[in-house]
Write a protein that binds this DNA or RNA. Structure first.
Lengths: 238, 238
DNA sequence: AAAAATATTAACAATTTTGTTAGAATTTTC
DNA sequence: GAAAATTCTAACAAAATTGTTAATATTTTT
């Protein structure tokens, strides 16, 4: 769960031992932290995750996070030097979770390509359904602080790049087999991402306006999923 | 442009004359403000609009707005009592702009329904292209402050409700004519909104990751538009 | 031109928010 | 069990942020 991320406390500890402190130590190459090794630190991370997801960086409050975690805010500054640093770790974590989920969507199988795509759409939809705040979180933070994406650009680009290549190969082969019509990988994936993510981006507004018309939140979400599967299916069909 | 909105100064002025001050005076029924009537007030509104669009309510700063507008922040509090009040006016304005644009998408014509839809998709896409920050702005503010939608819920719901009815009638008739396949208005409009809005929601991320692959921002945007038109067309085709 | 209304400024103030520090308490290491 | 490292607390502090106020300048009305 926690990629590229460990606390200042952990770095300090490590550094005390190995005596190699630098300000910009590369977190990636330090052994990842054992979970539940430290209750308070984990409580802070959990609280910070929720606070940042819900309110974004600008709306989040260090004191509010500390209160949720059941610690003083001085404690929070002890484990994580600044708000920015606490945020960066959590942000990187989400980015890798999103990218990781995407790149695992296609698993080699003998199924027809159109079926593989539908499976991927379904898995992706369910992932966002389980993590409905992530799309807005990522979009909002990149939009308000564009410089943040620089930190992860290269690592993400290569991962995603390979993934797009895989999908494009699948498309090319399916085209040769006469299974699908013409489309390129980027547009197909952008369509899927748009339809799936926007369902949950717009949900609060939709239910504020149309709540009285629809029986139930989950009923509408399931209807959207079926509609998206149909839309993508028809987009690929010859 | 400015719906349901006038400044405290203007209300004060009006109230001084008509001697009918109440705290919750209904702005809607006060004569709308003449543009350019007051340079400083307009400069504040313009600056606030940009600041809120760019940074959201939580990230926006009264002093920053005042500086952009070339006035002291005391001046800003003179025209608009609080940050919240300044924001509310601008927010309402955006909501009505978005809803207004949507409800004007379908104009009665003799064209085949599928062509009417494609025209609407194109107009809607271009609207967001001209106002690319609005979708994130609205989604973000509703997500972080859900109570705000209550202020406009009823007025918006009825407007949108009527619009959905119009679209549904068009669908029903086109179905009878054998022009399109089965779909309901809400899903169709949600599809269009998803594909169009997400293009611009994801653009900063997309270009951070894939910028090097694509020649130009505007080229990609145009490609997306064509892809969306194709996707909606195939979704409706029998 | 006098009076009234409106616009503007500068200084002040309350609160929030992030961050620090010195020292005490606890745990770990030797 | 002594020394060292660490965890933790309470109080402090600096800066940012929103908002107020009293006095002054300007414009509008009569």
């Amino acid at each position: 769960m926690l990629y590229l991320f460990c606390s200042i406390k952990f770095v300090n500890k490590t550094v005390n031992k190995i005596r190699q402190w630098t300000q910009n130590i590369n977190f990636q190459y330090i052994t990842t932290m054992t979970k539940h090794q430290n209750n308070k630190e984990m409580a802070i991370l959990e609280a910070a995750r929720n606070e940042f997801l819900e309110k974004g960086y600008d709306g989040a409050r260090i004191t509010s996070i500390a209160k949720s975690a059941g610690v003083t805010h001085a404690m929070l500054h002890y484990y994580f030097k600044t708000k920015e640093q606490l945020f960066t770790g959590i942000f990187d974590d989400f980015i890798h979770q999103v990218v990781g989920n995407m790149t695992e969507l296609f698993n080699d199988s003998d199924k027809p390509f159109i079926q593989q795509v539908e499976d991927a759409v379904s898995v992706h939809f369910d992932f966002i359904k389980e993590n409905p705040q992530i799309p807005l979180f990522v979009i909002r933070e990149i939009a308000t602080h564009p410089e943040r994406i620089e930190l992860i650009k290269d690592s993400v680009a290569s991962t995603i790049g390979g993934f797009f290549g895989t999908v494009q190969k699948g498309i090319d082969q399916a085209r040769i087999n006469g299974e699908i019509c013409d489309i390129d990988a980027i547009n197909l994936l952008f369509d899927v991402l748009s339809l799936n993510a926007f369902t949950f981006l717009a949900r609060p507004i939709f239910f504020a306006v149309f709540g009285r018309l629809t029986a139930d939140d989950s009923v509408f979400i399931e209807l959207r999923k079926q509609e998206i599967l149909k839309t993508i299916h028809k987009r690929l069909a010859i």
